[in-house]
Design a protein around this nucleic acid. Structure first.
Length: 494
RNA sequence: GCCCCCAUCGUCUAGUCUGGUCAGGACACAGGCCUUUCAAGCCUGGCACAUGGGUUCGAAUCCCGUUGGGGGCACCA
């Protein structure tokens, strides 16, 4: 039997990271099994529909490299793959259930429903439909008047389904609501649409968040009513925030887009997401896996049942590992959009700045946790800096005179350097420090401050090379001015 | 309120099914080495089987209770 799985997002605006983890597991399992992965759009709620949401979903999937075999843009034999284009099917299936006695028409007003719900709540009961229309005679509500179609859940007995991770789960039928299957606007609800589509599209395995467990019995009842065999269920543990609650915006970034914009690599995201709730098991201590390794090793046997906290720290670490493993060329290409977005370089990058960028890449590579970090690390190369205040220009255990002399010596050395190249700088500048009776660190620190305006930067000489001779000398000069002004003020008591 | 699910370091987890190695690894944290700053790298350290009761020669592992956490209860998915 060919494994067929699906990802069935609602086009409500963005791709949530919790959804993404579900997709990753579905996709890895399907690829591992050589099955078919299907994307189906569940747009049955017209009130929540967002215009370009479909685009966001497909862009997100493509960014992660999660391809689908059937669905929007690629077609397939079981289409259409958008539920709003399948309305007549659901309607027909709902009528079929009425004919078989498993469903009934209901014309209770939303107001009445709300009022019985609130009453049930205040009385401490589980809110559910009171069944007013359930026993009305067959022709009592005309198919032409506004109404919904509800599932006729048995009052007695229990419904059991099997979950691969948790075993059999049983719920008493009396606790299940007479779920609405077809809304008064003619659209199906999720419960009907998903069962009909999963069956008609030949879905064999359903992997989704375990927040769906409580509603699964209703689904099973539908399969029984239709006389169909339910698929295999795998309920995945939820992805939660640091407080243990369902991951949401207040925990930090939650949409795939945001992670992309913050400079996470798709391959790092995939690796990290795969390990959230799944592990290779059997004493395996490897943490970093290629896409191919993940596909080869993924199995349902090692999925955890407990919810997993989404650790931004660990994701950053994984991302850093992936960044360090990139070739210089590859990293450069990925960094350019971030420099450009910060306004440091134009896009596309002009050929004359490429050598500067190439100098920078090896300097920043092991310092980046995200691609976007490059901005903070190198902005002074492209943009003018503020001349540092006097405290930053006087070295540790040094006088202003010594500091001025040190900067002057450095400036004159750099001004006359034949090859303005990082490799040519270190030795002679250490020499300069020695001659001035300074530790190398004392000299380098004030030079760093003078030239970058920051106390923490990538290695100094590479940075100086990237900044270039003219700008470097100019910045040193400005630093000297500050020191000279300071000294003048000292000797001239006010 | 009712129902369902879950429970190993702060976090992700290995080990649980097939009871018996100082409960292993990683992130984070602390200290150290390296070092022009910051990283990266290396070394070291602290840190967990929620709890009570069984079963057993022996329980993180099997059973029951308790506690704790999460989720669900729409003409939303």
């Amino acid at each position: 039997m060919t494994v067929r799985t699906r990802f069935a997002p609602s086009p409500t605006g963005y791709m949530h990271i919790g959804n993404l983890r579900t997709v990753v597991f579905n996709w890895l399992y399907t690829r591992n099994q050589n099955g078919k992965f299907i994307v189906r759009i569940e747009d049955t709620d017209r009130t929540r529909y967002v215009e370009n949401a479909l685009q966001i979903i497909t862009d997100s999937l493509r960014w992660l490299g999660l391809d689908w075999d059937e669905g929007p843009e690629v077609g397939g034999d079981y289409g259409p793959y958008v539920q709003s284009e399948r309305l007549d099917i659901y309607k027909e299936k709902a009528e079929e259930l009425i004919a078989k006695g498993y469903a009934y028409r209901c014309n209770c007003s939303p107001e009445r429903l709300a009022s019985i719900r609130s009453q049930q709540r205040t009385e401490g009961d589980m809110p559910m439909y009171d069944g007013l229309c359930r026993d009305k005679p067959a022709g009592d509500i005309s198919p032409d008047e506004p109404h919904v179609i509800r599932l006729k859940v048995p009052h007695e007995g229990v419904t059991t389904f099997h979950d691969v991770l948790r075993g059999d789960i049983t719920v008493e039928n009396r606790l299940l609501d007479d779920q609405i299957l077809l809304k008064s606007d003619g659209f199906p609800t999720y419960h009907l649409a998903v069962v009909v589509d999963d069956h008609m599209m030949g879905i064999t395995h359903i992997m989704r968040g375990d927040d769906w467990i409580p509603s699964t019995p209703k689904r099973i009842l539908l399969y029984q009513a239709f006389g169909w065999t339910p698929p295999v269920y795998v309920h995945l543990p939820l992805v939660v925030g640091a407080d243990g609650k369902k991951l949401s915006k207040r925990h930090g970034a939650v949409s795939v887009e945001e992670f992309w914009r913050q400079g996470y690599l798709p391959e790092a995201m995939l690796n990290f997401m795969a390990m959230l709730g799944w592990s290779p098991g059997e004493g395996e201590e490897q943490e970093i896996f290629t896409r191919e390794e993940l596909i080869a090793r993924f199995s349902l046997n090692h999925i955890n049942k407990a919810p997993a906290v989404f650790s931004y720290d660990k994701l950053k670490w994984v991302n850093g590992v992936y960044i360090r493993n990139l070739s210089h060329e590859d990293l450069l290409e990925r960094l350019i959009p971030f420099w450009a977005e910060a306004g440091l370089i134009p896009l596309p990058a002009p050929t004359e700045v490429i050598p500067t960028l190439e100098t920078l890449v090896p300097l920043v590579q092991e310092r980046l946790k995200t691609l976007r970090d490059v901005v903070e690390l190198t902005d002074f190369v492209f943009a003018d800096i503020e001349t540092p205040p006097i405290e930053k220009l006087i070295g540790k255990n040094m006088t202003a005179e010594q500091s001025l002399a040190a900067i002057q010596q450095t400036q004159s050395f750099l001004a006359h350097l034949v090859q303005f190249d990082a490799a040519e700088m270190e030795k002679p500048l250490r020499q300069v420090a020695a001659e001035l009776n300074l530790k190398a660190g004392q000299l380098f620190t004030i030079i760093r401050n003078a030239v970058t305006g920051k106390e923490v930067t990538p290695p100094l000489f590479g940075i100086i090379e990237a900044i270039g001779r003219a700008t470097t000398l100019k910045r040193l000069e400005r630093a000297e001015d500050v020191l000279r002004d300071y000294l003048a003020a000292q000797t001239q008591p006010a």
